[in-house]
Structure formats: C-alpha cells, structure tokens
Amino acid sequence: MNPVEIKNICKTYTRKRFLSFGKKEETPVLKDVTLALKEDRVLGLVGESGCGKTTLSKIVLGLEKPTSGQVIVDGKDLGNLSKAGFKKIRRFMQVVFQDPYSSLDPRMTIRQIISEPLDIHGLYKEKSTRKKVLEELIKSVGLSVEHLNRYPHEFSGGQRQRIAIARALALDPKILIADEPVSALDVSVQAQILNLLKEIKQKRRLAMLFVTHDFAVARFLCDEIAVMYKGRILEYAPGEELFSNPQHPYTEALFSAVPVPDPVHQKKRQAVSVAARADMEGHLCPFASRCRYVCAECGQTPPMLKEVRPGHFCACTALPFKKKKSSFAI
C-alpha cells in the first residue's frame, strides 16, 4: 500500500461569464492523472507553467476538489472523509510552498510559526517537551535556537524556506508536498536547501511529491519523474532512466532547451524547435501542434501511457516512428 495513490484525477475549472445566458466556460486543467507516492521515494512532477502541476499538488493536499477521480491517502479516500477524519490525515501530510516571503505570517515569531501546527493538533503540550521539540526542529533545518524568537522579516529567502520546512516537519509527517521550493532562491542558497531536503527525506523516509520546472533540480532529488504537459502525464520513468533514455518528443525538446553551464558544450547544442503550428490544433495528442514527429495517428488516437521499457511509461502514439530521431545529448 502506497502512502498516496492518485487515481484518474480530472479537474475542470468552470466559470460563468457575465451575460452569457447560463453558458459556462470550461477549462480542463488535469486529464486522467494516475500516480503514486511511495515511501522513502521522491516523485518529481516536471512541466512548464500552466501545465497543471500546482493544481495536482493542491488536489493531493485536499485544498482543491477534483472533478472526478480519487486521491487515496493511507487507504482512505480524501473525497469521502469527514472534517475530523481529514484533520487526522492532514497531520501526516504537509507542504512547503514556493514563495517563502508570502508563506510565513509576518506578525508571528518563528516560535509561533513552528508551534502552530502542534497547537492545532494538540501535540507536545507540556512546556519542557514543547521547548525541546522546537529546538530540535530548528536545529534540524540548520538554524539555531536563538532564531526562534525572531520575526520572518529578519531572515533571508533561504532561511525562510528553512523555517517553512521546519514547520512542515513539526508534525512528523509521512508525506511531504514541495511545490517549487527552491525556484525563488539564489543559486548558492538553492544548493543548501536541496541538500537539506535530500537529507530530510533520507532520515525520515518521507514520501515526497516534488513539483518543479527545473530538470537539473529534479535529477538531483527525484527517484521517479513524471513529465506533464497540458494536464496530462506524457512520460513517467525512474529518474536516471528518463535522463539516459528520454522517449517522448516533448521530454526530448525540453532537455534540448535546458542550457548547460559549460560554454564549449553549450555553444554546440541546438534546441529542438517547438514553434506551435496552427494547423495541428484539435489533434488528440496535446503536444501534436509543437511536435516534430507528428503523424496522422496523433489526431485519431488519444495518447495513453504505455510501458516502453521496464518501468518507463510514455504516452506517444507516434513512438515507433520516432526511432529515426537524431541523436542528441543533454
């Protein structure tokens, strides 16, 4: 039994437009997403902006309701839980958000921020135990005890993200959802936080969902990676397998577009062109209009995830034809 099972999640946002006579505008953001978070594993969810990766993480957290499909946490369906039942589950599932400037209350001290989840769940009420727990937590994220009495504005971005991580760890969760936790940080600080997340995951055997747009970060931290595009998972594979054998044309295009910090190598590389062509709109494959291997079948058959190599799933109808692809290196 995996800690989290995401089964056939679909999410459509609807809005009523003014003077539209009851007609609704529907925007599908997630289409039939099935994934699982495993104990002591990090699942990377990688995609460009607007692909639905944040929406999916919100649904897993229960912050958004899916239009259809189930999220099963610890054997229980999130959709059928009572308020009290949900609170129990939430204790084991915590989140770290992208922006450490807006996710910490500026009027609370760090002690109050980290204590809040403990208060809500009524844990460690005894004064000396609470003190000990807080001190251990703040040290485990690389800050010191005197930081507890300060306010968020006294900290830099990286330190704030450490505080957000300490708050998430306060309840000793089994599941951690991290939504772009390092993308707002400076390069030199980013490395510190990535090391910290890796260390925490190993120590606590967490099941982690790591949402990112950065493949380099995903390669460092993730055990499995799902590549998402327009609300669909196009490719899913163990991390190293994905980087050595990317199968989907979209993944290939993304890899080729990521610049590498090596001027000699980088100046030789050529990004795969993915300019959108209007004539391909309406194809069943969401990537068809930008794909260079597009064929007639892409318009007829919806792309389904198929196992193309052991443990490696890819949703591409044109896949067998793709073999004539030019060799390319990351």
Partner: peptide, 9 residues
C-alpha cells in the same frame, strides 16, 4: 553549487 542536468549528484 550548480545542480547539473548532465549527471546525478
């Protein structure tokens, strides 16, 4: 301190 896409660290 750069994370590399070319190899796993």
């Amino acid at each position: 301190s750069l994370v590399s896409i070319r190899q796993k660290a």
